[in-house]
Design a protein around this nucleic acid. Sequence first.
DNA 1: TTGCAAATGCGAATGATTTGCAGCAAATTG
DNA 2: CAATTTGCTGCAAATCATTCGCATTTGCAA
Lengths: 149, 149
Amino acid sequence: MYNQEALVNRLHARGIRVTPQRAMILRAVEAMPGHVTAEELYAAVQAESPYVNLATVYRTLDLLKSLDLITDADMGTGATHYALRSHADHHHAICRACRHSVEFPDHLLSGLIHDLHTGYGFEAEANHIVVFGLCAACAKIEELHSSPA
Amino acid sequence: MYNQEALVNRLHARGIRVTPQRAMILRAVEAMPGHVTAEELYAAVQAESPYVNLATVYRTLDLLKSLDLITDADMGTGATHYALRSHADHHHAICRACRHSVEFPDHLLSGLIHDLHTGYGFEAEANHIVVFGLCAACAKIEELHSSPA
DNA sequence: TTGCAAATGCGAATGATTTGCAGCAAATTG
DNA sequence: CAATTTGCTGCAAATCATTCGCATTTGCAA
Ligand SMILES: [Mn+2]
Ligand SMILES: [Mn+2]
Ligand SMILES: [Zn+2]
Ligand SMILES: [Zn+2]
Protein backbone atom coordinates (compact mmCIF):
# COMPACT_ATOMS: atom_id res chain seq x y z
CA MET A 1 0.00 0.00 0.00
CA TYR A 2 1.51 3.31 -1.02
CA ASN A 3 0.40 6.81 -0.23
CA GLN A 4 -2.09 9.00 -2.04
CA GLU A 5 0.41 10.83 -4.17
CA ALA A 6 2.25 7.73 -5.24
CA LEU A 7 1.32 7.88 -8.89
CA VAL A 8 2.20 11.55 -9.16
CA ASN A 9 5.59 10.82 -7.64
CA ARG A 10 6.22 7.94 -9.96
CA LEU A 11 5.59 10.07 -13.00
CA HIS A 12 7.88 12.75 -11.65
CA ALA A 13 10.54 10.16 -10.98
CA ARG A 14 10.41 9.07 -14.60
CA GLY A 15 10.62 12.62 -15.85
CA ILE A 16 7.09 12.69 -17.16
CA ARG A 17 5.11 15.89 -16.99
CA VAL A 18 2.49 15.99 -14.30
CA THR A 19 -0.10 18.45 -15.48
CA PRO A 20 -3.03 19.48 -13.30
CA GLN A 21 -5.28 17.26 -15.39
CA ARG A 22 -3.03 14.29 -14.92
CA ALA A 23 -2.66 14.91 -11.21
CA MET A 24 -6.43 14.98 -10.82
CA ILE A 25 -6.88 11.83 -12.84
CA LEU A 26 -4.16 10.03 -10.94
CA ARG A 27 -5.68 10.96 -7.62
CA ALA A 28 -9.07 9.84 -8.85
CA VAL A 29 -7.59 6.52 -9.90
CA GLU A 30 -6.06 6.05 -6.47
CA ALA A 31 -9.24 7.05 -4.69
CA MET A 32 -11.39 4.57 -6.59
CA PRO A 33 -12.35 1.37 -4.87
CA GLY A 34 -11.59 -1.49 -7.23
CA HIS A 35 -12.17 -1.22 -10.96
CA VAL A 36 -13.32 1.84 -12.80
CA THR A 37 -14.31 2.70 -16.32
CA ALA A 38 -12.92 5.73 -18.13
CA GLU A 39 -16.35 7.28 -17.94
CA GLU A 40 -16.52 6.83 -14.17
CA LEU A 41 -13.13 8.39 -13.72
CA TYR A 42 -14.20 11.20 -15.96
CA ALA A 43 -17.21 11.86 -13.76
CA ALA A 44 -15.10 11.82 -10.61
CA VAL A 45 -12.60 14.25 -12.06
CA GLN A 46 -15.30 16.54 -13.40
CA ALA A 47 -16.66 16.90 -9.90
CA GLU A 48 -13.37 18.52 -9.02
CA SER A 49 -12.89 20.50 -12.18
CA PRO A 50 -15.24 20.64 -15.12
CA TYR A 51 -12.50 21.45 -17.58
CA VAL A 52 -11.01 18.02 -17.98
CA ASN A 53 -11.78 16.18 -21.15
CA LEU A 54 -12.73 12.56 -21.55
CA ALA A 55 -10.08 12.19 -24.24
CA THR A 56 -7.49 13.27 -21.70
CA VAL A 57 -8.73 10.62 -19.31
CA TYR A 58 -8.22 8.02 -22.01
CA ARG A 59 -4.81 9.37 -22.88
CA THR A 60 -3.74 9.37 -19.24
CA LEU A 61 -4.98 5.84 -18.77
CA ASP A 62 -2.95 4.79 -21.79
CA LEU A 63 0.07 6.42 -20.25
CA LEU A 64 -0.41 4.68 -16.91
CA LYS A 65 -0.91 1.40 -18.71
CA SER A 66 2.29 1.80 -20.68
CA LEU A 67 4.10 2.50 -17.41
CA ASP A 68 2.53 -0.63 -15.96
CA LEU A 69 0.98 1.35 -13.11
CA ILE A 70 -2.56 0.20 -13.83
CA THR A 71 -4.23 -2.84 -15.30
CA ASP A 72 -7.10 -2.95 -17.74
CA ALA A 73 -9.62 -5.72 -18.03
CA ASP A 74 -12.68 -6.48 -20.06
CA MET A 75 -15.24 -7.47 -17.44
CA GLY A 76 -17.87 -8.12 -20.06
CA THR A 77 -19.78 -4.87 -19.67
CA GLY A 78 -18.66 -3.19 -22.87
CA ALA A 79 -16.31 -0.70 -21.25
CA THR A 80 -12.78 -1.47 -20.14
CA HIS A 81 -12.20 -1.53 -16.40
CA TYR A 82 -9.04 -0.01 -15.01
CA ALA A 83 -7.46 -0.67 -11.65
CA LEU A 84 -4.28 0.12 -9.80
CA ARG A 85 -1.59 -2.50 -10.14
CA SER A 86 -1.68 -2.72 -6.36
CA HIS A 87 -5.30 -3.82 -6.62
CA ALA A 88 -4.44 -6.74 -8.79
CA ASP A 89 -3.40 -9.53 -6.50
CA HIS A 90 -6.32 -11.51 -7.80
CA HIS A 91 -8.38 -12.30 -10.89
CA HIS A 92 -12.04 -12.67 -11.70
CA ALA A 93 -14.30 -15.50 -12.73
CA ILE A 94 -17.47 -13.96 -14.12
CA CYS A 95 -20.71 -15.81 -14.77
CA ARG A 96 -21.99 -15.16 -18.25
CA ALA A 97 -25.57 -15.75 -17.06
CA CYS A 98 -25.98 -13.80 -13.83
CA ARG A 99 -22.91 -11.60 -14.27
CA HIS A 100 -21.71 -12.39 -10.78
CA SER A 101 -18.02 -12.19 -10.24
CA VAL A 102 -15.85 -14.37 -8.06
CA GLU A 103 -12.37 -13.25 -7.17
CA PHE A 104 -9.73 -15.91 -7.21
CA PRO A 105 -6.13 -15.60 -6.05
CA ASP A 106 -3.19 -15.04 -8.29
CA HIS A 107 -1.56 -18.36 -7.58
CA LEU A 108 -4.23 -20.26 -9.49
CA LEU A 109 -2.59 -18.89 -12.61
CA SER A 110 0.97 -19.61 -11.61
CA GLY A 111 0.99 -23.02 -13.26
CA LEU A 112 -0.15 -21.64 -16.59
CA ILE A 113 2.24 -18.71 -16.44
CA HIS A 114 5.10 -20.97 -15.57
CA ASP A 115 4.30 -23.40 -18.37
CA LEU A 116 4.01 -20.62 -20.93
CA HIS A 117 7.34 -19.29 -19.84
CA THR A 118 9.33 -22.48 -19.76
CA GLY A 119 7.55 -23.97 -22.76
CA TYR A 120 7.46 -20.97 -25.08
CA GLY A 121 9.52 -18.22 -23.51
CA PHE A 122 6.28 -16.29 -23.32
CA GLU A 123 5.93 -13.70 -20.57
CA ALA A 124 2.22 -13.68 -19.85
CA GLU A 125 0.89 -10.42 -18.53
CA ALA A 126 -1.91 -11.91 -16.55
CA ASN A 127 -2.24 -9.38 -13.77
CA HIS A 128 -5.94 -8.88 -13.41
CA ILE A 129 -7.64 -11.14 -15.88
CA VAL A 130 -11.17 -12.35 -16.38
CA VAL A 131 -12.33 -15.88 -16.99
CA PHE A 132 -15.89 -16.30 -18.18
CA GLY A 133 -18.15 -19.24 -17.52
CA LEU A 134 -21.03 -20.24 -15.28
CA CYS A 135 -21.30 -19.89 -11.56
CA ALA A 136 -22.46 -22.90 -9.58
CA ALA A 137 -26.06 -21.71 -9.41
CA CYS A 138 -26.39 -20.87 -13.10
CA ALA A 139 -24.63 -24.07 -14.11
CA LYS A 140 -27.37 -26.04 -12.37
CA ILE A 141 -30.04 -24.10 -14.21
CA GLU A 142 -28.43 -24.71 -17.60
CA GLU A 143 -28.22 -28.38 -16.75
CA LEU A 144 -31.99 -28.57 -16.36
CA HIS A 145 -32.48 -26.82 -19.68
CA SER A 146 -30.35 -29.24 -21.64
CA SER A 147 -31.35 -32.56 -20.12
CA PRO A 148 -34.96 -32.36 -18.91
CA ALA A 149 -35.77 -35.81 -20.39
CA MET B 1 -13.48 -34.21 -37.75
CA TYR B 2 -17.02 -34.21 -39.02
CA ASN B 3 -18.34 -33.79 -42.53
CA GLN B 4 -19.12 -30.62 -44.44
CA GLU B 5 -22.80 -30.50 -43.61
CA ALA B 6 -22.33 -31.19 -39.95
CA LEU B 7 -23.56 -27.85 -38.71
CA VAL B 8 -26.60 -27.91 -40.97
CA ASN B 9 -27.48 -31.34 -39.65
CA ARG B 10 -27.05 -30.30 -36.07
CA LEU B 11 -29.44 -27.42 -36.48
CA HIS B 12 -31.97 -29.71 -38.13
CA ALA B 13 -31.59 -32.19 -35.31
CA ARG B 14 -32.44 -29.50 -32.79
CA GLY B 15 -35.46 -28.41 -34.76
CA ILE B 16 -33.95 -25.10 -35.75
CA ARG B 17 -34.75 -23.60 -39.13
CA VAL B 18 -32.02 -23.87 -41.67
CA THR B 19 -32.64 -21.06 -44.09
CA PRO B 20 -30.54 -20.67 -47.24
CA GLN B 21 -28.68 -17.83 -45.57
CA ARG B 22 -27.88 -19.92 -42.54
CA ALA B 23 -26.80 -22.86 -44.67
CA MET B 24 -24.40 -20.65 -46.58
CA ILE B 25 -23.02 -19.11 -43.43
CA LEU B 26 -22.60 -22.50 -41.79
CA ARG B 27 -20.76 -23.86 -44.81
CA ALA B 28 -18.56 -20.79 -44.86
CA VAL B 29 -17.77 -21.28 -41.18
CA GLU B 30 -16.81 -24.89 -41.82
CA ALA B 31 -14.72 -24.02 -44.84
CA MET B 32 -12.71 -21.40 -43.00
CA PRO B 33 -9.26 -22.33 -41.83
CA GLY B 34 -8.89 -21.29 -38.21
CA HIS B 35 -10.45 -18.12 -36.90
CA VAL B 36 -12.62 -15.73 -38.81
CA THR B 37 -14.21 -12.38 -38.20
CA ALA B 38 -17.84 -11.70 -39.00
CA GLU B 39 -16.70 -9.43 -41.79
CA GLU B 40 -14.57 -12.16 -43.35
CA LEU B 41 -17.42 -14.62 -43.22
CA TYR B 42 -19.66 -12.00 -44.72
CA ALA B 43 -17.26 -11.57 -47.63
CA ALA B 44 -17.06 -15.32 -48.18
CA VAL B 45 -20.82 -15.68 -48.18
CA GLN B 46 -21.29 -12.69 -50.44
CA ALA B 47 -19.13 -14.37 -53.04
CA GLU B 48 -21.76 -17.07 -53.20
CA SER B 49 -24.81 -14.85 -52.95
CA PRO B 50 -24.81 -11.10 -52.69
CA TYR B 51 -28.11 -10.96 -50.87
CA VAL B 52 -26.98 -12.00 -47.45
CA ASN B 53 -26.77 -9.29 -44.86
CA LEU B 54 -24.01 -8.68 -42.37
CA ALA B 55 -26.59 -8.47 -39.60
CA THR B 56 -27.68 -11.99 -40.50
CA VAL B 57 -24.11 -13.18 -40.22
CA TYR B 58 -23.93 -11.74 -36.72
CA ARG B 59 -27.29 -13.22 -35.80
CA THR B 60 -26.25 -16.63 -37.07
CA LEU B 61 -22.98 -16.47 -35.21
CA ASP B 62 -24.91 -15.66 -32.05
CA LEU B 63 -27.07 -18.67 -32.66
CA LEU B 64 -24.11 -20.98 -33.17
CA LYS B 65 -22.51 -19.58 -30.07
CA SER B 66 -25.61 -20.20 -27.98
CA LEU B 67 -25.64 -23.78 -29.28
CA ASP B 68 -21.99 -24.06 -28.33
CA LEU B 69 -21.03 -24.99 -31.88
CA ILE B 70 -18.50 -22.21 -32.26
CA THR B 71 -16.19 -20.26 -30.00
CA ASP B 72 -15.50 -16.57 -30.04
CA ALA B 73 -12.32 -14.90 -28.95
CA ASP B 74 -10.88 -11.43 -28.78
CA MET B 75 -7.51 -11.77 -30.45
CA GLY B 76 -6.71 -8.13 -29.87
CA THR B 77 -7.50 -6.89 -33.37
CA GLY B 78 -10.74 -5.13 -32.60
CA ALA B 79 -13.04 -7.67 -34.18
CA THR B 80 -14.16 -10.89 -32.55
CA HIS B 81 -12.74 -14.07 -34.05
CA TYR B 82 -15.00 -17.06 -34.44
CA ALA B 83 -13.97 -20.67 -34.87
CA LEU B 84 -15.57 -24.09 -34.92
CA ARG B 85 -15.65 -25.84 -31.58
CA SER B 86 -13.72 -28.62 -33.28
CA HIS B 87 -10.94 -26.11 -33.93
CA ALA B 88 -10.56 -25.26 -30.30
CA ASP B 89 -8.34 -27.93 -28.84
CA HIS B 90 -5.85 -25.20 -28.05
CA HIS B 91 -5.49 -21.60 -26.89
CA HIS B 92 -3.39 -18.62 -27.88
CA ALA B 93 -0.65 -16.60 -26.28
CA ILE B 94 -0.39 -13.35 -28.22
CA CYS B 95 2.48 -10.90 -27.99
CA ARG B 96 1.26 -7.38 -27.37
CA ALA B 97 4.31 -5.97 -29.14
CA CYS B 98 4.76 -7.96 -32.35
CA ARG B 99 1.28 -9.48 -32.37
CA HIS B 100 2.65 -12.93 -32.94
CA SER B 101 0.54 -15.76 -31.67
CA VAL B 102 1.66 -18.98 -30.10
CA GLU B 103 -0.77 -21.85 -29.79
CA PHE B 104 -0.64 -23.78 -26.58
CA PRO B 105 -2.48 -26.99 -25.74
CA ASP B 106 -5.63 -27.19 -23.74
CA HIS B 107 -4.12 -29.07 -20.85
CA LEU B 108 -2.13 -26.04 -19.71
CA LEU B 109 -5.43 -24.68 -18.49
CA SER B 110 -6.66 -27.83 -16.82
CA GLY B 111 -5.18 -26.90 -13.46
CA LEU B 112 -6.89 -23.53 -13.39
CA ILE B 113 -10.19 -24.95 -14.58
CA HIS B 114 -10.06 -27.69 -12.01
CA ASP B 115 -9.23 -25.28 -9.20
CA LEU B 116 -12.04 -22.92 -10.17
CA HIS B 117 -14.44 -25.81 -10.18
CA THR B 118 -13.48 -27.45 -6.92
CA GLY B 119 -12.80 -24.16 -5.18
CA TYR B 120 -15.75 -22.10 -6.34
CA GLY B 121 -18.09 -24.39 -8.25
CA PHE B 122 -17.33 -22.24 -11.24
CA GLU B 123 -17.58 -23.86 -14.67
CA ALA B 124 -15.04 -21.97 -16.71
CA GLU B 125 -15.77 -21.79 -20.42
CA ALA B 126 -12.21 -21.56 -21.54
CA ASN B 127 -12.42 -23.21 -24.92
CA HIS B 128 -10.35 -21.02 -27.14
CA ILE B 129 -8.96 -18.25 -25.03
CA VAL B 130 -6.26 -15.67 -25.48
CA VAL B 131 -3.53 -14.73 -23.05
CA PHE B 132 -1.64 -11.55 -23.80
CA GLY B 133 1.94 -10.78 -22.93
CA LEU B 134 5.35 -10.65 -24.55
CA CYS B 135 7.00 -13.25 -26.72
CA ALA B 136 10.58 -14.21 -25.94
CA ALA B 137 12.03 -11.87 -28.55
CA CYS B 138 9.99 -8.83 -27.58
CA ALA B 139 10.58 -9.49 -23.88
CA LYS B 140 14.32 -9.15 -24.51
CA ILE B 141 13.80 -5.86 -26.29
CA GLU B 142 11.70 -4.44 -23.46
CA GLU B 143 14.36 -5.50 -21.02
CA LEU B 144 16.93 -3.34 -22.78
CA HIS B 145 14.58 -0.38 -22.71
CA SER B 146 14.00 -0.52 -18.98
CA SER B 147 17.50 -1.34 -17.72
CA PRO B 148 20.10 0.05 -20.11
CA ALA B 149 22.26 1.25 -17.22
C1' DT C 1 -54.96 -22.13 -47.35
C1' DT C 2 -54.42 -19.56 -43.38
C1' DG C 3 -51.98 -17.90 -39.42
C1' DC C 4 -48.26 -16.99 -36.76
C1' DA C 5 -43.70 -17.19 -35.06
C1' DA C 6 -39.27 -16.88 -36.66
C1' DA C 7 -35.88 -14.95 -39.91
C1' DT C 8 -34.21 -11.42 -43.01
C1' DG C 9 -32.68 -6.99 -45.23
C1' DC C 10 -32.00 -2.42 -44.72
C1' DG C 11 -30.54 1.55 -42.69
C1' DA C 12 -30.06 3.96 -38.67
C1' DA C 13 -28.36 3.92 -34.06
C1' DT C 14 -25.02 2.77 -30.43
C1' DG C 15 -21.24 3.48 -27.65
C1' DA C 16 -16.56 3.05 -26.43
C1' DT C 17 -12.47 4.69 -27.99
C1' DT C 18 -9.45 7.50 -31.14
C1' DT C 19 -7.87 11.24 -33.85
C1' DG C 20 -6.91 15.79 -36.18
C1' DC C 21 -5.97 20.03 -35.11
C1' DA C 22 -5.27 24.57 -33.10
C1' DG C 23 -3.97 26.81 -28.88
C1' DC C 24 -1.01 26.64 -24.69
C1' DA C 25 2.47 25.54 -21.44
C1' DA C 26 6.73 23.68 -20.17
C1' DA C 27 11.25 22.70 -21.24
C1' DT C 28 15.39 23.50 -23.86
C1' DT C 29 18.73 26.13 -26.26
C1' DG C 30 22.11 29.59 -27.32
C1' DC D 1 16.52 36.17 -21.32
C1' DA D 2 14.03 35.42 -26.08
C1' DA D 3 13.42 32.04 -29.37
C1' DT D 4 12.29 27.55 -30.57
C1' DT D 5 11.03 22.99 -29.87
C1' DT D 6 8.30 19.53 -27.58
C1' DG D 7 4.49 17.83 -25.17
C1' DC D 8 -0.32 18.23 -23.44
C1' DT D 9 -5.12 19.62 -23.78
C1' DG D 10 -9.88 20.62 -25.27
C1' DC D 11 -13.04 20.15 -28.72
C1' DA D 12 -15.46 18.15 -32.26
C1' DA D 13 -15.53 14.89 -35.65
C1' DA D 14 -14.39 10.29 -36.99
C1' DT D 15 -14.04 5.19 -36.31
C1' DC D 16 -15.76 0.91 -36.35
C1' DA D 17 -17.63 -3.39 -34.60
C1' DT D 18 -21.91 -4.64 -33.30
C1' DT D 19 -26.91 -4.10 -32.46
C1' DC D 20 -31.66 -2.51 -33.27
C1' DG D 21 -36.16 -1.11 -35.20
C1' DC D 22 -39.16 -2.19 -38.34
C1' DA D 23 -41.44 -3.53 -42.55
C1' DT D 24 -41.33 -7.54 -45.35
C1' DT D 25 -40.68 -12.45 -46.21
C1' DT D 26 -40.43 -17.21 -45.06
C1' DG D 27 -41.20 -21.74 -42.98
C1' DC D 28 -44.11 -24.79 -40.98
C1' DA D 29 -48.20 -26.54 -38.76
C1' DA D 30 -53.15 -26.59 -38.07
MN1 LIG E 1 -10.48 -7.01 -9.15
MN1 LIG F 1 -6.87 -21.06 -32.66
ZN1 LIG G 1 -24.39 -17.08 -12.45
ZN1 LIG H 1 6.63 -10.27 -29.81
